[in-house]
Amino acid sequence: MTTPRTGGAGWLSWRAVALVLGALVMLFPLYWMLVTAFSDTGTLTSGPLRLWPQHPTLEAFRRAFGLLPFGRFFVNSAAIALVAMALSVTLNLLAGYVLAKYRFRGRQAVFVLILSTLMIPVQVVMVPQFQLVAGLGWVDSYWSVIVPRAAEAFGIFLCRQFMLGIPDEVLEAARIDGAGHLRVFWSVVLPMSRPLIAVLVILTFMYRWNEFAWPLIVLNDQSLFTVPIGLAFLQGQYGTDYPALMGMALLSTLPIVAVFAFFQRQFVEGVARSGLR
């Protein structure tokens, strides 16, 4: 491969400089949140402008944890996100596989129907959904958060696109060998879908960890609250404790950041292979 002719791979190229500047702009709000989290309330918004905390302190975190059982909230969020992720990923893979590799009448219609659910604004169907969930007796249990959103269209779409690229010959071969439908899925399709699974795991975990409006309505018992709900509390009617709020907000993003950082390569690869077209 010929060496690139413009710019270089080093740090002084225009490209690199632009990217780094852009990155700084992207990071600045988060940086400012970090500064806030370690400041005390008094010096924060008045007095001369300082871009770093004058007397860094962990007080805000102590206050936040003292005000609400955030440790418990983290555990709740993790439990819900993990189980919901496992459920959703399984459902997505199944549906994507069927929609990609099976021929049957109504296939297009089903796919379109599923896609159309992407367009339903959450706030609008919230109340009927709640009535339904309440009728099932699921209020104040994790089921109410996990199940209604377990089937979701975006993941199915990704799976379908990805699996369209699985060579039919391989599936044929397995079928000819006498494998049943589920066995083909399990033994042939899944191992081929690792990058896809990586993408799904990351995205689903992220969506479920970040969910706010629905868990707020459907979980009334404070001991079941998730982290985003806890954050909403820190914005009280009685004045906002910005350092505590920013501190917990940042803390709440750590798990996702960790997950994404860890699986970054697989993620990009998975997106690439889903052949988004």
Binding site: V20, L30, L245
Partner: peptide
């Protein structure tokens, strides 16, 4: 760098709004 650009997407809507 890639992670830095992707980071805001990963943050929850509540946190983004508050920030």
């Amino acid at each position: 760098l890639r992670a830095v650009y992707y980071l805001p997407y990963v943050i929850s809507g509540v946190v983004v709004a508050v920030a």
